[in-house]
Design a protein around this nucleic acid. Structure first.
Lengths: 244, 244
DNA sequence: CGACAAATTGAGCCGGATCAAACTGAGTGG
DNA sequence: CCACTCAGTTTGATCCGGCTCAATTTGTCG
């Protein structure tokens, strides 16, 4: 008896799967791929034949910008499906790379398409997952476009903490978050130096502490207010402790 | 004999529809809604029961930012499906408003879901449309995050011109583009004053002219180079004149 | 101990924000 | 036909948040 396919628990986190859905997923091949930290997974424009489900680790998607800079446009945490878009666009629209060492379930496009045709509810939920990613991306436009440095960072930490909380990898605003200040600068569009100073500002205000790959939010309400964070765009069931 | 449903020509622009697909679309109710300029269509958080296909006009999606500012996160032109995401997310994630007077085909969510279940290829193409919108949104993160004022504007004009070209509303970089400088400032995150000065800079360099609701790109290669524009992220068939 | 990645600090500068005002053109009503 | 209004554009002056360049410190690992 094999362990269930990783997509099973992904599905169970959202709905109560039917027997048919269980069976259809069980029919998928269950390749798991390991990726060391800092390794590229996909390159912009590359033709892709498979998608991934993150089991462990953190990845990011980035696009080249002016000079040799790269703007990070998304982070992926366990339960996310990086590059699922290539399923219908054929090629990857960004560079995707591991930040920490990762374990990924490989989902072949052909199998995925067959699954979607056979199980329309799964298709709708995968579609939905891409829509949530798009919603996050629009929020990032606001973040990089209109918010000050401290606000942008505050917002980013609120988002990541909330997403990690939703999958049980954060509790009460504390989580492992092995991002360097360079990652943060590439995600916000700020200079490395200014990220450093803005982080000091956030610490000095007693809003959070960040270091050694660990984030602890000490004043959730204050941080969310500063960053203008409204969790709705993540389309997650809102956990109790965050209410009001 | 009724005219064909507007979604028919949307589909025909991408694939050769089957008889079954024609029939399934013909079964949709064909309500068309008119919307005067500057009228809101959807508000953030509003529960939505229908999606739209733009037949005429330009709309934009925006999200509230610091103070009473609103960051524009997307423009919609004919052939686009604003707020299609609400089909699977239930509520609208942004404010959507007409910029010019618009005509929209109304697509009820229930009918749309039935259509997707019956015609998986149409479902995949609608999914694809949302993925392209997401890809554009990620490019906007780069635009607002890393590009200078002139570069961000140059990139925006390249994008809009390319999209309008693809639906036959632009030729050789010239198109009607009834955006005010205020719209441009809200889309790029720049101040109105600075947009004005950056536009003068673009005109002075002989790259484009913009005024009276009309955009003319005089030096496509120069403008694209300045803005770092690579049309790939739009996932359109690339027109000949743009090559090399 | 040396090497290297990451974090931190300091100084000077600039792109773009802000504030304030004037200008243009298209209505619109007397 | 003119005065008025109002949205949109333009200009000028000033200020500051964030960038750049350059160095130093800290922590980790071999």
């Amino acid at each position: 008896m094999r362990p269930p396919h990783p997509l099973t628990s992904w599905l169970e986190r959202i709905v109560e799967p039917t027997a048919g859905e269980y069976a259809a997923i069980a029919r998928l091949s269950a390749e798991v791929r390991s990726l060391p930290a800092d390794q590229p997974l996909r390159r912009l424009g590359e033709e892709a034949g498979s998608a991934f489900l993150v089991l462990e680790g953190i990845l990011c998607a980035s696009k080249p910008a002016e000079g040799d800079k790269h703007q990070i446009v998304a982070f992926f945490v366990p339960g996310d499906l990086p590059d699922l878009e290539a399923l219908h666009l054929g090629r990857s629209g960004q560079d995707i790379a591991a930040i920490t060492a990762c374990r990924l379930a490989v989902l072949g496009h052909a199998e995925l398409r067959a699954l979607c045709a056979a199980e329309p509810r799964i298709a709708a939920l995968l579609w939905r997952a891409t829509l949530v990613a798009a919603s996050v991306s629009r929020e990032w436009v606001v973040n990089t476009g209109h918010r000050s440095a401290v606000a942008a960072l505050a917002h980013l930490f609120c988002e990541l903490s909330t997403r990690l909380e939703a999958i049980g990898l954060a509790r009460g605003g504390a989580c492992d978050l092995p991002l360097t200040q360079t990652h943060l600068s590439r995600a916000t569009g700020l200079s490395l130096v200014h990220v450093n100073r803005s982080l000091q500002e956030l610490r000095r205000r007693g809003l959070l502490s960040l270091g050694n790959g660990r984030l602890a939010i000490h004043d959730w309400a204050g941080l969310a207010a500063l960053g203008g964070f409204e969790a709705g765009y993540l389309h997650l069931p809102r956990p109790r402790w965050m209410a009001a």
